[in-house]
Design a protein around this nucleic acid. Structure first.
Lengths: 231, 231
DNA sequence: TCTTTTCGTTGATCTGGATCAGGTTTTAAG
DNA sequence: CTTAAAACCTGATCCAGATCAACGAAAAGA
């Protein structure tokens, strides 16, 4: 199975944010002039689904979840480490609100760019527009992968996926601080907290992971990947 | 709840395809010269996940499903009536394959446009690029809605959703030919064929729909919408 | 310091919906 | 027309995983 067909449940892209790389100094200044930087504490809401989307955001530091909410139900679409962009889907014609909410998992720094300035850049710089297209396209593919994972895999596969994603995509090491609670993990894997606990214990008993005080270590990534693959 | 937050399970956009509207005659000729039109019969595969994406497609006539496949599992991402575009997500840098498969539900006509020509248009015409961005962004929001629906609603809500979508978005009338089999409906609502049958019978018994020979009629759209909303 | 939440764990129970198994009806093919 | 193959329907069973309940441990607040 080619790599592109591996559906993983925790959607984080692999391509670094590059849409600003090719801007002229003048354009960079323009972005600078039309943006502000904001510090958020853990758990704060960066943007709220349905509210006016007056800006595109770039998460410069920290970690955030992007999610849909409807009543008491929430669905995490993806988690975003720095450096990534938030709010591109609100760019479509006739829409002026955020289609999702975002909240920080830890203290984070976010740059807000006026959406009108962002749109101006798209109109005036076709290369920039091309890169926005590229980001949107990749994002679509990534979220589709998570869509598949959450609808077709069962609990063990989903949680294995989340653990592998945290290790491979977010912290980029086998041993990482567990800054997310069981509730966070459960929400990411779209299951109950109790199931999360049970499966983590099982993984621990089988020697796939080790849980220290506030740290988690992946001991057998291959086996976890197998569990993720068979679903 | 604002309209944009209504998650429906059968993702079809409401905005007509408009990205070609503002092209010059010269650009339209360029598209024409770099494209071909193909006729497909019911059930034929328009594009295959993982194969080379040498072209972007426009479905000019007919109806198709866009889906992910992995082993025996398939997940329908959206269904596309004419006139809509297929393949935008394969536009991202470093990717040259289709991220999903597509298959016709009925005899359909598809125009294939060379991807290199399409990319050239994006590079040379910022307005066109802007419209591609708009389409991708809207598509993201729509698929997220289906994502939410399939992961958070239970069977009754999902099937109600599918029926409403067929009526409102695809056929645009309360009474429409049932060209999809129970298996198709089941796949769309992501449930078993048996459950689909049972729920349809229940809806019929309760007077929400009527099923004639090869035709289905929505009798109580309000009640169906309520079922869809509460999940 | 003590008290109150919040977090994590484990066992018992319940249930939505899949699966299985047996039909009939419709469509397609020979 | 006959036969084979889909498509459709209905009841019985089973199971993954949610929910409920109860309790210890850690963190936060007073």
């Amino acid at each position: 199975m080619p790599k592109s067909v591996v559906y993983n449940g925790c959607s984080v892209g692999e391509n670094p944010l590059c849409c600003f790389d090719d801007l002229t100094q003048e354009e960079l200044d323009f972005v600078e002039q039309n943006s502000v930087e904001v510090e958020y504490k853990r758990g704060e809401t960066i943007c709220k689904q349905g509210s006016f989307a007056s800006h595109i955001m770039v998460i410069k530091e920290g970690l955030a979840k992007i999610y849909l909410e409807n009543g008491n139900d929430t669905l995490i679409l993806k988690i975003l480490p720095a450096i990534n962009i938030i709010g591109l889907p609100s760019l479509f014609d006739g829409n002026n609100t955020f289609p999702y909410s975002a909240q920080t998992y830890m203290d984070s720094t976010v740059r807000q760019i006026e959406i009108s300035a962002f749109k101006k850049l798209i109109e005036s710089n076709a290369k920039f527009a091309g890169q926005v297209i590229s980001m949107l396209a990749e994002n679509t593919v990534i979220i589709n992968g998570r869509f598949f994972c959450l609808t077709k895999k069962q609990t063990y596969g989903r949680l294995a996926d989340v653990l592998l994603c945290l290790s491979n995509r977010i912290y980029k090491t086998d041993k990482f601080p567990l800054q997310l609670t069981r509730k966070d993990l459960a929400e990411l894997a779209s299951m109950s907290v109790e199931s999360t606990t049970r499966i983590l214990t099982k993984f621990k008993d089988e020697g796939l992971i080790a849980v220290h005080c506030q740290e988690i270590e992946i001991l057998n990534a291959d086996k976890l990947l197998e569990i993720s693959t068979i679903g």
